[in-house]
Design a protein around this nucleic acid. Structure first.
Lengths: 152, 152
DNA sequence: AACACGTTTCAATCATCGCTGAACTGCTTG
DNA sequence: CAAGCAGTTCAGCGATGATTGAAACGTGTT
């Protein structure tokens, strides 16, 4: 692992820790973006990032469950490999829809305690969520259409 | 503060703590969504939520700096009041653009360590960021147009 | 001026959560 | 069936960061 690679992993990790991710989680993500080969065993990841086997196991599982990383079995080799899923970033964006829906839910539940004064404080959130729930799917479609040009 | 209100504040707080916000920050947000009157002093907020004056002061400042909350002076009364800004939720969405740009930056910096194997791991992120940087502003415009219908 | 009230600041405390290390499971091979 | 390796689990440690409480500040009031 070169200095430049190390620096980049750090940069990615810094970004994602800023938005609330665990350090190890973020470092693994950064490493899987640039490592060679793209498929890595847990041991390789642990070695490259100087992380304990435990952290790698745990955080890798959350990566997998989020759909960012996939496990691959290389035939002839029994050790599991992990790699960034192709389209990983797309699915991050696509999953935004769930969060938007959750916000809509929050707004809807607010109906029970709607304030007389400036009820928009709650309703505005609902309208917004509805707007995005409508706009997001076509946006995702355009995204896929546009960015799949080179890779069919 | 009724039980229902308390419950709702808790629900909002739970949602936002899930995505990495501080508990007090999130509770204040929930309270400012449904409190009556909409304008509240720090002391009122602290009392309603059983928070210390210190937390309220600190977290309220971050709310203000994020543009979610604004301070208002009620004439005749010297104590400062705080309230949810109208259009608060809109500006949350609008500020997403900054995060998208940051992701684009991250991808661009990745050029220095671009892997030979599956370089899309990095470049895909850049394309995505570009796509959103282009799509976001018009989307925001449509959002404002559509949701401002009732409130000119 | 002195006081009262609202707000800010900050050091100390507390809680949370991620990380480590070691023990454990399961699989494969000699 | 023992040995070796990959991965998992979990208790305990450590660090980060939020919360508190008290003291300082400022502003308006008597």
């Amino acid at each position: 692992m070169t200095d430049a690679q190390h620096e980049y992993v750090d940069q990615v990790a810094t970004f994602f820790t800023m938005v609330g991710s665990a350090r190890a989680w973020a470092e693994i993500l950064g490493w899987l973006m640039i490592c060679e080969p793209a498929e890595q065993s847990q041991a390789q990841i642990a070695a490259a990032l100087s992380l304990s086997a435990g952290s790698v196991s745990t955080q890798l599982r959350t990566h997998v469950s989020l759909g960012l990383v996939e496990q691959v079995r290389v035939r002839g080799d029994r050790t599991q490999r992990y790699r960034l899923r192709s389209g990983a970033w797309h699915s991050v964006m696509a999953s935004e829809l769930d969060r938007i829906r959750a916000l809509g839910e929050l707004a809807r539940d607010g109906a029970a305690v709607l304030p007389r004064e400036r009820p928009e404080r709650v309703t505005e959130l609902g309208d917004l969520a509805d707007f995005f729930a409508r706009e997001w799917p076509p946006l995702m479609e355009r995204m896929n259409a546009e960015l799949t040009k080179g890779t069919p």
